[in-house]
C-alpha cells in the first residue's frame, strides 16, 4: 500500500502541476480520471487530502503557515469519510459473499421443482415459474401414476425471498412423504394442512391448488386452499370461467376441510393454474385486470401450452418494464383432441 501511495503521489503532483500551469478542461478531465484510480488503489479520503498538501508544498514552498495548518483541519474532517469508506469496502465484500451464498441456495431450490413436465398423449402441459428475486416462494409439482392420472399442485407461500423459500422446501418434502396411493385433492390438502399447521410459524401461510386429472375419462378433480383462482377454458363456447375452489389457507386451522370440485374436460378445453404474481402484475396504472390475462391466453391459444405460458409471461413482464414484483407461476393443462 505504501508503494501505491508514493506512485499516486507522483502522478498527482504531475497532473496538478499541469493543471495549475494550463488551467484548462483537459487538466480537470485528468483529475476526474485520477479519482477513479484513487478508488481502484483504495486510497482513502484523508490520504487524498494529504496528497494534495504534499504536492502544494512542493509547488509553493512559501505557503503561508495558516493555509498549511488548515489542511490538518481538513484531514481531521475527512476521517469520518475515511472510516465510512473502509466500512463500505468491507460491507461490499460481505454482500458479495451473501450473494454467492444465495446463488447456491437458489440453485438448490431449483432442484426442488420437477426437472421435466410430464408428457402424455392426452394432455398438453405448459409450465413457467419465475422468481421475483433469486429465491422463489412459488412451488409447483406434478405426479403421474400408472393409470395415467396426473396430479398437479401449485402453491404460493405468502411472502417472498429466503423465508418463503425455506418454507417451500418443507412443502416439497411434505408432498414427497404423502402416502403412495393417489389421494383425492381434498384429502391431500387436509393432509398437507396438518403438516403445515404443525411445522410452520403461525405467521406463515401457504395457499395451494391441487388437481387430479384422470386422462382415461378426462375428469379433473380439484380443491383449493385460499389460492388465487385459475381459469377454465371451454373450447365449444370459446369462453373462460373462473376455476375457483373454496378453502382456508394451509396452516391456519388444523381441522380444515377442503371441498372437492369437478370438471368434465372436453377436447381443446384447458385448465389454467396460476400464482398471484400473475394476477397482481402492477403497471403504472395499477393492477392489471384478470381479463387481461385471459385476453393474452386467448391471443396465443393456437400455440402449444408451453408456448402460451412463455408468451403470456413475456407480455406481462414487458408490461411491468421487465421488473417482477412477485414470484410468477403459470401452468396450462390442455386436453389434446
Amino acid at each position: 500500500m505504501a508503494d501505491s501511495y508514493s506512485f499516486m503521489q507522483e502522478q498527482y503532483t504531475k497532473i496538478l502541476k499541469t493543471y495549475l500551469e494550463e488551467k484548462n478542461e483537459i487538466g480537470l478531465y485528468q483529475a476526474q480520471q485520477f479519482s477513479k484510480k484513487v478508488l481502484e488503489n483504495q486510497i482513502s479520503p484523508e490520504e487524498v487530502v494529504s496528497l494534495h498538501i504534499e504536492a502544494l508544498e512542493h509547488f509553493f514552498p512559501d505557503l503561508p503557515q495558516g493555509a498549511r495548518d488548515s489542511f490538518d483541519f481538513l484531514i481531521e474532517i475527512m476521517m469520518g469519510y475515511g472510516m465510512a469508506y473502509r466500512e463500505h469496502q468491507i460491507l461490499r465484500d460481505k454482500q458479495k459473499e451473501l450473494e454467492s451464498e444465495i446463488n447456491v441456495a437458489a440453485s438448490m431450490q431449483q432442484t426442488f421443482l420437477p426437472d421435466e413436465i410430464p408428457e402424455m398423449d392426452t394432455l398438453d402441459v405448459g409450465v413457467i415459474s419465475v422468481p421475483a428475486s433469486k429465491m422463489s416462494g412459488d412451488y409447483y409439482h406434478f405426479v403421474k401414476d400408472d393409470n395415467d392420472c396426473i396430479g398437479v399442485a401449485i402453491a404460493d407461500i405468502i411472502g417472498k425471498g429466503v423465508p418463503a423459500a425455506l418454507c417451500m422446501s418443507m412443502i416439497k418434502y411434505a408432498m414427497d412423504s404423502l402416502p403412495e396411493q393417489r389421494l383425492q385433492p381434498g384429502a391431500l390438502l387436509e393432509n398437507l394442512n396438518r403438516v403445515v399447521e404443525q411445522n410452520v410459524a403461525s405467521n406463515m401461510f401457504i395457499t395451494m391448488m391441487y388437481g387430479s386429472y384422470d386422462s382415461r375419462v378426462h375428469h379433473f378433480y380439484y380443491s383449493g386452499a385460499g389460492h388465487e383462482p385459475g381459469f377454465y377454458y371451454n373450447k365449444a363456447e370459446d369462453s373462460f370461467e373462473e376455476l375457483y375452489a373454496k378453502g382456508l389457507v394451509l396452516g391456519l386451522n388444523r381441522d380444515t376441510q377442503f371441498r372437492e370440485y369437478h370438471k368434465k374436460v372436453e377436447p381443446g378445453d384447458f385448465i389454467v393454474l396460476l400464482s398471484d404474481g400473475v394476477t397482481e402484475c402492477r403497471t403504472d396504472d395499477g393492477f392489471i385486470e384478470r381479463e387481461e390475462i385471459t385476453r393474452l391466453i386467448r391471443q396465443y391459444s393456437d400455440l402449444s401450452a408451453q408456448e402460451i405460458v412463455d408468451n403470456v409471461f413475456y407480455q406481462l413482464e414487458k408490461l411491468q418494464g421487465f421488473r417482477l414484483r412477485d414470484d410468477f407461476s403459470l401452468i396450462i393443462l390442455r386436453r389434446k383432441v
Binding site: G80, G82, M83, A84, R86, E87, I90, L91, K94
Partner: peptide, 20 residues
Amino acid sequence: EDGYTTSGGLGAGLPGVKRL
C-alpha cells in the same frame, strides 16, 4: 461486526477503530 451500530454512527464503532 461491521454494520452493527448502537448510536447510528457511520463507519465508526470498534471495527472502525480496529481498521485505523
